[in-house]
Design a protein around this nucleic acid. Structure first.
Lengths: 168, 168
DNA sequence: ACCCATGTGTTACTATATAGCCTCACTATA
DNA sequence: TATAGTGAGGCTATATAGTAACACATGGGT
């Protein structure tokens, strides 16, 4: 199965998580950034979900794991670090966070978001980024960052075909 | 001056506001939707600003105008109505709202947002929407709605040229 | 030993958004 | 004219999201 379809299909996600953590560790080492136990744990929790996770959901999960209360600033600081390092993205439309599958490369925040099952799939399309640059430049606008959040239905949740006879 | 550049340049904005209000009224009439005084006032306040306006900023302005307190639900209900009618867009990255210049047409929420002066300019590019559809379809994803929020510097705020000698 | 930088804990708070209930105005009908 | 239905808006309270500010702790360098 092509890599690009992964998020929308069954797969051994444990593997995704552990390789994401390993890659994160490596990147941080290279950069002299400190992937502390807390930050690592937050990253792991985010990666374990294909559905973007809110900061407070994350807090709850951390609280369960550590059996003691975790306050908002703790989580937000870890998230800020992960965002700075490009290890996670924020999904503004959901006030939530999702792991970045290609943290080493410079790239934008572009997602397909299923409104039914909630799964988020990052898209990395040169054509799309190009289209945005072209439109912006036509207005004399200097692009620094773009956020694309496309909502709809993923292959698992959309009607199975588009033929005239309904098949919900 | 081409219409597309309007938001980034000086112009008689009073005219924009009044024609937007007139168009909104017309659309609501056609649809049997009620553009009540409150809703109209909220729409007008939003239109008066080229910078997306938050719900609480809106509340404050309403409170000044009416000289009595306006509670959050009041504003949010008006905003919900305006969003449903496609008269305004929500900018998720800013938790704010901006008037839609082409409310009659079906279109997406795609914006250039200047991080310096805050001005928001809606873009309506078939190429961009097309690029999104293509990427989505490649993943078998059924697009219902897209939100593009490009941040950067508008023509007025970006350095005046890109030549080697700096000219901030 | 000491200082300093960085990361985390903690309290309190601000900002954004919604639930639920009440009243009013308008309309449709008996 | 009564009266019930509907939709808009007022209001209180509360939920959810995010931040400020300070205290403490650890680990590295001098």
């Amino acid at each position: 199965m092509p890599q690009k379809l992964l998020a929308f299909h069954r797969h051994n996600h444990t593997h995704c998580v552990s390789s994401a953590l390993a890659e994160a560790q490596e990147l941080c080492n290279e950069r002299g950034a400190r992937l502390t136990p807390l930050r690592r744990q937050v990253l792991e929790l985010i990666w374990q979900s294909h559905i973007p996770l809110g900061a407070y959901a994350l807090m709850d999960q951390l609280a369960e794991l550590t059996t003691r209360r975790v306050a908002p600033p703790t989580v937000y600081r870890a998230l800020d670090f992960l965002l700075e390092q490009g290890l996670v993205h924020r999904i503004h439309g959901l006030n939530a966070f999702i792991g970045c599958p290609t943290p080493g490369e410079h790239h934008q925040s572009e997602f397909l978001l299923c409104r039914d099952c909630g799964v988020a799939k990052e898209i990395d399309s040169e054509e799309l980024s190009q289209a945005i640059r072209i439109v912006a430049e036509a207005d004399g606008f200097l692009v620094e960052n773009n956020s694309v959040e496309v909502t709809g239905l993923c292959p698992n949740c959309r009607p199975k075909d588009d033929a005239p006879h309904e098949r919900a």
